[in-house]
Design a protein around this nucleic acid. Structure first.
Lengths: 172, 172
DNA sequence: AGAAATGAGTTGACAAGACAACTCGTGATG
DNA sequence: CATCACGAGTTGTCTTGTCAACTCATTTCT
């Protein structure tokens, strides 16, 4: 356990376990503690699997699903609002909306004041798609948290919220 | 706070806060609790920022950085081992190794038994690159965890480890 | 009112990452 | 020994996601 030695020296700002360990007298990343690698590993596996299933079963990509889920959360919103809430690029949102509209999952209305601006919502087919994918998505999330103590999951969620706020501040 | 009502009914398997809430009499994703959206939002922001900085400062992509970090953790390993530890596709690993080798960051030796198989390591330039990027990467991780209680961060890491094990079981 | 700045959305190009088909060498089986 | 299966790595192609340049309509400033 060479990564546990002397935490108060190796770990910045009171952090308990260090993101690095020593290798040949040099600090290197500790893959079991360095956070960005966890995010990459878990997120890539998750979205890889989701993409495969949603494309197979529903002929819908992950981006389209996220837009659909957002239109169910807040019906009658413009593209901009979708970008804001699910942290999606406006280019991706634009393409997803067009594809969903071509497949007849959406209704929309142009704003009178600004014809560029459109308000979007799910039509009946869209809601049916939403309910079907949501069932699969919740099952997948259930598998993800299997064996995790509920109290710890709450702590985890609070840390995730704080990290999301941090990255929004830092990267944008 | 409509997502807190009746947790013991709405939340499967003893989970304390539900990944869904009600909207127009229909369950929809709650973006402040549904875990895959957190992963997507945080990971995309993180790797977007990292990619931009590493390309600017070091002319190195994120995949290359991860391979470099892995060769510092375990010198003299074959491509296969890199894929295994940092959950990287063998195609991506292959391309990253070639690019790093063309830019003279690596040393290698073909196995005598099997000339397809090569053992890779960082040369002096490679280690210099590693140390420079590591400094930036740790600073970025530091910003990510700013304001998070160290005890909670430990819980978070344990949950992440469990989730990684779960996705490995489920998606592969 | 006319020019400039702003803002919504579209499009093209590219990085990250994954999958599948392929090459090529090794090792197992007849 | 011939063939067959396997395994390492390469390459082509696709999805996801991002950035930057662009269009076009609105709003602001003088």
């Amino acid at each position: 356990m060479d990564r546990e030695q002397n935490p108060q020296e190796t770990c910045p700002e009171g952090r308990l376990s260090s993101p690095t360990k020593q290798q040949d007298g040099r600090p290197v990343v500790d893959p079991s503690t360095y956070i960005p690698y966890f995010f990459a590993a878990i997120n890539n596996a998750l979205s890889r699997g989701a993409s495969r299933i949603y494309l197979e079963k529903f002929n819908i990509g992950i981006v389209e699903w996220r837009v659909v889920s957002m239109l169910a959360i807040e019906p009658r919103i413009p593209a901009q609002r979708i970008c804001e809430v699910i942290s999606l690029d406006k280019a991706a949102t634009s393409r997803a909306l067009r594809q969903l509209q071509q497949n007849d999952y959406l209704g929309f209305k142009s704003s009178e004041r600004d014809p560029r601006r459109k308000i979007w919502w799910l039509n009946d087919r869209g809601y049916e798609l939403h309910d079907n994918i949501l069932r699969v998505a919740l099952g997948r999330e259930q598998n993800l948290i299997r064996g995790i103590d509920p109290e710890n999951l709450e702590v985890f969620l609070n840390v995730m919220r704080k990290m999301r706020d941090n990255v929004v501040d830092l990267e944008n």
